[in-house]
């Protein structure tokens, strides 16, 4: 009996524990999150419930076996991920940030990251002034760069969709973007330079 029919027979979710053998690793089954392959079988690596979804790959329908833990997944930033970070410290060469969310997952513990001057903007790289792009306390969207020898995550905002999302003025009011490079305070009407992100809905048609 396949794992799928076992699941469908009972309405109760199938609870599994780490190391539990879930099903045979064959052409019909692919191991997904929370599982691993070992000696021709798919095993669970988490304690949680088994979830099976259909995945079409190269026009072949396969069952994707996943295990979802009860509490949220513990994840770490991977190169290429879009993260939400808070700017903490600025200097001439880089700004230090704290990664607060990866995608739409809120982290329970922030990760430290560095956004170097060269990675702030895609154009005019040699004329970037860190202080004219970010201020401490700004909430930014950024992409994680591949890990290098430096043992800290490196971010990049060199895309028009990346940059400041939320910034507060000196008056403590959230500012409104007026161009790609400026934001204005609705209370004092002061303009402040920022590297503003062009916010696009995630499911917008491309």
């Amino acid at each position: 009996m396949s794992i799928k029919s076992t699941l469908n027979d009972s309405n109760k979710p199938l609870v599994c524990v780490p190391g539990q053998r879930l099903c045979l690793l064959d052409n019909e089954h692919v191991s997904g999150n929370g599982t691993y392959e070992h000696q021709g079988y798919i095993h669970s690596s988490l304690a949680g419930i088994v979830k099976i979804s259909e995945k079409t790959e190269n026009n072949v329908k396969r069952n994707l076996i996943e295990v979802h833990g009860i509490n949220e997944q513990s994840i770490v930033p991977a190169p290429g991920d879009i993260v939400t970070a808070k700017v903490m410290v600025l200097n001439q060469r880089y700004c230090k940030c704290l990664i607060k969310c990866i995608g739409d997952v809120v982290l329970s513990r922030p990760y430290r990251a560095i956004l170097r001057k060269e990675d702030i903007r895609a154009t005019d790289k040699d004329r970037i002034d860190v202080y004219k792009c970010y201020r401490p306390g700004d909430i930014i969207l950024a992409r994680v760069l591949p890990l290098t020898e430096i043992h800290s995550y490196q971010l990049s905002t060199a895309e028009s969709e990346l940059g400041v999302v939320i910034a507060h003025s000196d008056a403590g009011v959230p500012m409104i973007p007026i161009s790609w490079t400026e934001m204005q305070c609705p209370k004092t009407h002061n303009k402040e330079p920022r590297k503003v992100a062009r916010i696009v809905p995630e499911n917008a048609p491309v």
Binding site: P18, G19, Y36, H43, L46, A47, G48, N71, E72, S74
Partner: peptide, 11 residues
Amino acid sequence: LVDAGIPLKEY
């Protein structure tokens, strides 16, 4: 570790 949801090969 199980409670923390850290992936284990087995217990």
